[in-house]
Simulated scan of single mutants.
Amino acid sequence: MGKGSTEEASVLMSPERSRSSAQPVGSMPPPQPPARYVDVRPFRSWTPWLVPAIVVANIIVFIITMYVNNCPKKTGTCVADFLGRFAFQPFKENPLLGPSSTTLLKMGALQVSDIVHKKQGWRLISCIWLHGGVFHLLANMIGLLFIGIRLEQEFGFVRVGILYIISGIGGSLLSALFVQSNISVGASGALFGLLGGMLSELITNWTIYANKFAALTTLVFIIAINLAIGLLPRVDNFAHLGGFITGFLLGFVLLIRPHFGWVAQKSLPMSSLPSKSAKRKHKAYQYLLWIIAAILLTIGLIVGFILVFRGVDGNKHCSWCHYLNCIPTSKWSCKDSSSVFCDILTDSTMTNITCRDTGKSRSYPVSNPSSGQINSLCAQLCG
């Protein structure tokens, strides 16, 4: 008390505390501890390394392919002769600045006859890592960097890696069913699988996006443009479609995320959440899409493998499906190698092919070529 004061202060003693904890009557209650918020990070950010590694691997495989190709020794007339054995095949044979079809076949290009008759099923995977030329490689790798890095940052290397490989296989399966007269190479099927995964991810995780319709419109536009480009000649659009469908279904399985209500709930103070108000991590429609997609994907892949290894030609069962791969116009033709004819003469080391339409003849260092190789070489010679 102040000096000279005669007033007496009343104090209230807490029974749980000692004398030293006495407080004046009428004072404010002690402040409550601040509400505890949970630091929730449902969307972990990953450091992308797999997608750049895939790009590097594709470049290395292309360099090895060009080394094996050795155009100066096998052909003579090459593009960019200063590159030595890494020089490209003539433009007329390969306008993409790349190796010959024979080299691509040796390296593992997709050829249905080898899968059916020689049981070389590994070509369904090996063809994903091969490219027809520099232009082909650049287009796919730039697209992969733009799309794949974003996905890997959000979902990690495991899920993106699975999505990439299985989508590539799905693209190879559909290509093998409908494009049986030519060889096929490229990562386009796997790349379209990533696009398909992005679309299904947007659909199944609809509640967490702010600009939903803008994102959907942009993504659908990009997909439509790329599929439309596949309708041009010399582009394997069946690989694009197969990869896209596979990636679209797989995205519902691999890229599912907690819905917005669960995320918002986890960011609230723990004390403000009644035990009965807890929300489920995923919506019912997400589980439904997961189940449907998993079933369709499993059935589709199993049926696809069976049909391919049995040598089924999809064009015989679908008279209009070839328009999904190329639409003929007055500017270009969609004729493939089956529409040209050549005379073949082979010996123990060489194969001589003569085009009946043009009379051109050329010898190739190939012994006992398969029907697919003959068709491909004939198309190049007569083209």
Rank of each mutant, 00 (worst) to 15 (best):
I115V: 14
G132Y: 02
G242M: 09
F62L: 02
G84L: 02
A9T: 14
G133P: 09
L231K: 14
K74A: 03
Q120I: 02
L83K: 04
S367A: 15
W262P: 01
L249Q: 03
G196T: 10
I292Y: 14
G148M: 10
A284P: 08
G311F: 04
N352V: 10
Q89L: 02
I166H: 04
P29Q: 09
G4D: 13
P30G: 09
S167Q: 09
K331C: 05
V134Y: 04
V56C: 07
K118T: 02
G372S: 06
L145R: 12
L268K: 14
L163H: 08
M141S: 10
D336L: 06
H136M: 08
S27W: 10
L105M: 11
A80R: 15
L289D: 08
S361W: 03
Q32K: 13
P269F: 03
L377I: 02
G148S: 12
N237I: 12
C326Q: 05
I344W: 02
S333P: 04
N375I: 00
L191H: 13
S113L: 08
P365S: 13
L297P: 01
G108C: 00
Y287P: 03
L202P: 12
S27I: 08
I115Y: 06
F309I: 09
P31S: 09
A293P: 07
Y287I: 13
P365D: 10
S339C: 00
Q286D: 07
F91Y: 15
A35C: 09
L173D: 03
S18T: 14
P233S: 12
S361L: 04
M350E: 04
L324E: 05
V134H: 00
V25M: 12
K279E: 15
S101T: 11
Y37C: 03
M1A: 13
V366R: 01
A190T: 05
H322Y: 11
N237G: 12
I353C: 01
I306S: 09
D336E: 09
N182L: 10
A294I: 02
G170R: 08
A215F: 11
W122S: 00
Q180C: 04
M107Q: 05
